[in-house]
Amino acid sequence: MEVVEQEKIIGAINEKFEGQILKTEMLYDFFTITLKKDSIIDIIGHLYHHPSTQFQYLTTLCGIHYPDQKQIAMMYQLHNLVSNVQVRLKIHLPEENPTVPTLTPVFAAANWLERETYDFFGVIFQGHPNLKRILNVDEMIIFPMRKEYPLEDQTREDKNDTMFGR
């Protein structure tokens, strides 16, 4: 991605949200901006309407668990379909209370993606119209993608430590 494009995005954010950017980096050829968590939805809405960015397509959003930092990150990936520019916005939430406002007022597509993130990471999206599990069974009491929960089904009897190194 060209530096000009990166500066356009940074400029558009700084126009209205000065001091919100914590870090910008190229991660695996993908331009990533780490932001403060407070006004993430306003920033995405701003980038949606801003003439120089026009990020009007939400590619995906998801959670990431960082057990060492005791943080859960939220990642939003946006796409400008006119100039074919993509950007990733990242915020960090505390592990014990991962709460963030919902993105559904800006992108209706965020509805199911946020339900998935709630399902697997337990992130609470404030104002979400229907925040319940989407993929796992409703009776599940854990958030399986968090690192403190084991991957394996704990009720399986034919595998034990001596043979499989559980």
Partner: peptide, 8 residues
């Protein structure tokens, strides 16, 4: 599929 989502 020894995993949380699959019936064993």
């Amino acid at each position: 599929f020894d995993t949380y989502s699959v019936l064993q």
